[in-house]
């Protein structure tokens, strides 16, 4: 009698475990069926809400299926390094150029056909040929409508180190765009001047936030009055809430604070679906996609002849505002990180 109970209990336990694991089996079967042999695998550091519509359109137009792995640009870059030559990825679409530079230096990318990037404006062109910019974003100064007077707006990013801005500024040292900006500053103005500026800002009580969205939120919340971020963050806030109490502006023309950054895509060297991958890159540089980037996401298109969103500054203004700089010169991210660490910012 007792052993019957125990046997029954063990059987029940086994059944329960099987039941617990069965959804996994079902899922696996369904998922494996969905993953077709010829589908492209894209690792995307760009968000799902932005990328999904593009993927749908691409699949419609070309019939090539794309499986997307979303994540942070940095996590995906580290994953690609860990996977090494065994990576299942065909494409890597990064939110900013730092990750692309790091992987490019490690020879992880396959060269792209020159016609893809030959026609791009100079500020978007990378001469390495291993990755190509898909959209641009300008660094801007976001400031509070309520607490910043007309005369208080700085004309150069270097002005922010001034005493009257003490305790009113926020930045995001861990953010890729910020680090790219510091790298650019080092290239154009030299390490010493950059280090001096960073130190002065830190001593002036610059508050640290985790990313650009948090900076814009902090301005709304009243914690800071100024922040340097990318141009589209505030625009997205304003799209949801036209009364948001902040505005943005460029610094004076040519100032390093107006750096133009890019999102970019590359094809992995190990990919054996090169043709389809190139088609995808071509699609991202097509008129439709470029209009999507500027219309829905408020970024700057890289394709000549595509008009930027009406809410953005015109391309001519952008060219006037942006500093003279080589995208490829910005590959020394390590040096920037070392500097930020030395100053205790990271």
């Amino acid at each position: 009698m007792q052993s019957y109970n125990i046997a029954k209990r063990l059987r029940l336990a086994a059944a329960a475990l099987l039941l617990a694991f069965s959804p996994a089996a079902v899922f696996e079967a369904l998922a494996a069926g969905g993953r077709e042999a010829d589908a492209l695998t894209l690792y995307s550091g760009r968000g799902e809400a932005l990328v999904d519509p593009l993927i749908e359109r691409f699949e419609e137009e070309t019939g090539i299926k794309v499986n997307v792995r979303y994540g942070g640009t940095a996590e995906l870059a580290v994953l690609l390094q860990e996977e090494g030559s065994r990576t299942p990825a065909d494409l890597f679409w990064a939110q900013d150029a730092g990750a692309l530079g790091a992987l490019s230096t490690a020879d992880r990318f396959r060269e792209l056909p020159e016609d893809l990037y030959a026609d791009l404006p100079a500020i978007y062109r990378s001469r390495t040929g291993s990755w190509v910019a898909t959209s641009g974003r300008a660094r801007v100064l976001v400031y509070s409508n309520e607490r910043v007077e007309e005369g208080e707006r700085p004309s150069s990013v270097f002005d922010l180190a001034d005493e009257r801005y003490a305790g009113r500024f926020g930045w995001a040292p861990t953010n890729g765009s910020f680090q790219a900006f510091v790298t650019a500053m080092r290239v154009v103005h030299g390490d010493d001047r950059t280090a001096d500026w960073l130190e002065a800002m830190d001593e002036g009580g610059a508050l640290r936030y985790r990313n650009n969205t948090a900076l814009v939120e902090a301005i709304g919340a009243g914690e800071i009055d100024f922040a340097i971020t990318n141009n589209y963050y505030l625009l997205r806030f304003l799209a949801d809430d036209p009364d948001y109490p902040a505005s943005q502006m460029f610094f004076e023309g040519g100032d390093i604070g107006n750096l133009v950054n890019v999102a970019g895509v590359a094809i992995l060297a190990e990919s054996d679906r090169r043709e389809q991958a190139v088609e995808f890159v071509r699609f991202l540089l097509s008129r439709w996609s470029q209009e999507f980037f500027t219309g829905e996401i408020y970024e700057y298109p890289v394709l000549e002849g595509v008009e930027p969103n009406a809410q953005l500054e015109t391309f001519e203004t952008l060219l006037e505002a942006s500093p003279e700089l080589d995208l490829d010169a910005m590959e020394d991210l390590d040096g920037t990180l070392a500097l930020l660490r030395e100053l205790g910012l990271l």
């Binding site: 942070g72 940095a74 996590e75 580290v78 930020l340 990271l346």
Partner: peptide, 11 residues
Amino acid sequence: IFTQYHGAFDR
């Protein structure tokens, strides 16, 4: 740890 993975893409 975070800044190593994120900033430096370093494992």
